[in-house]
């Protein structure tokens, strides 16, 4: 039923069916079904508060009260074997402000790949991750003294450690200047093309949608569309993904209204 692009035999990186998440009295995600193909950049787009972060936390396995099916890299989300295979960056940078960039990465690397025998491998991994996010000149700066965007990149570098197969990035480009944003998107595409990493990237900025291979458009805990940017534009007859999104929102609202009136 799904078209997994280049490798149809391979199972998708993420497969969800009837995925529901309850937070307190609210149902944040309502019976979602979607797939994230491997080795591609999938964008998760939608307005703030639509459930993007909850969906990502569910994929990573840190979200409580998840029901339905959610398989990640062939295992149920949150399975212990996924802990080294999935990298996750929260919206707010989760790094230690009172450690330097390198000390932060050294520690997380030691958790992912512990032991003295792995020390050399870890050092290379850390140096590469710092270079990936372009912070080599700030290696010995305290994370707390860096700018917000720089701290975000330290957080991203932590997720790049150990070459995870799936990277889940929650609004990684928020608050970055255009040059850095372009560089990071270049990095994401390099990761997908060269390291065969699957990326699931959330954003509420619609122009970033054009840079993704596939899109999941979300609104109010539901998925409006699961398609490629081109197909979305063609299907809705829109110029941009933003226009396509608005078109879908209007159509959903109209459908809801007709349902109301016919009831």
């Amino acid at each position: 039923m799904m078209n997994f692009s280049s490798r149809p035999t391979e199972e998708p990186a993420v497969h969800a069916q009837d995925l529901t998440v309850v937070r307190g009295p609210r149902t944040v995600l309502r019976g979602l079904g979607f797939t994230v193909p491997r080795g591609q950049v999938t964008g998760l787009l939608g307005p703030s508060g639509c459930g993007k972060s909850t969906l990502m936390r569910a994929v990573v396995g840190t979200q409580a009260k998840v029901s339905g099916t959610l398989d990640v890299l062939g295992h149920p989300a949150g399975h212990p074997t996924l802990r080294t295979r999935v990298g996750y960056v929260t919206q707010a940078p989760s790094v230690y402000d009172d450690l330097t960039v390198r000390q932060n990465l050294d520690y997380f690397a030691a958790i992912l790949d512990p032991g003295r025998a792995a020390a050399d491998r870890r050092r290379e991994d850390v140096t590469r991750a710092i270079a990936d996010v372009d912070l080599t000149t700030h290696t010995d700066a305290l994370a707390g003294n860096l700018s917000g965007g720089q701290r975000n990149r330290v957080s991203l570098a932590v997720a790049l450690l150990g070459t995870p197969e799936l990277l889940v990035l929650d609004e990684p480009t928020v608050g970055l200047d255009p040059v850095l944003r372009r560089d990071l998107w270049q990095l994401f595409h390099t990761l997908a093309a060269e390291r065969d990493t699957t990326l699931l990237i959330s954003s509420h900025v619609m122009d970033e949608a054009e840079r993704c291979h596939r899109l999941l458009l979300m609104r109010d805990g539901e998925i409006l569309a699961d398609d490629t940017p081109d197909a979305l534009r063609t299907r809705t007859g829109s110029e941009t993904v933003e226009a396509a999104f608005l078109h879908l929102v209007d159509r959903a609202a109209a459908q809801a209204r007709t349902k109301e009136t016919t009831r």
Binding site: T81, Y96, D98, L99, Y107, L112, D113, P114, R121, G162
Partner: peptide
């Protein structure tokens, strides 16, 4: 990464790495 050690209840390497990290934070 070739063979990442599995997460056991207690891993000496991860424990000492954590202790070293806490002490490093204190040093700052």
């Amino acid at each position: 990464m070739s063979t990442p050690a599995p997460a056991r209840a207690l891993s000496a390497a991860r424990t000492t790495a954590t202790a070293a990290r806490v002490l490093r934070q204190l040093r700052h």
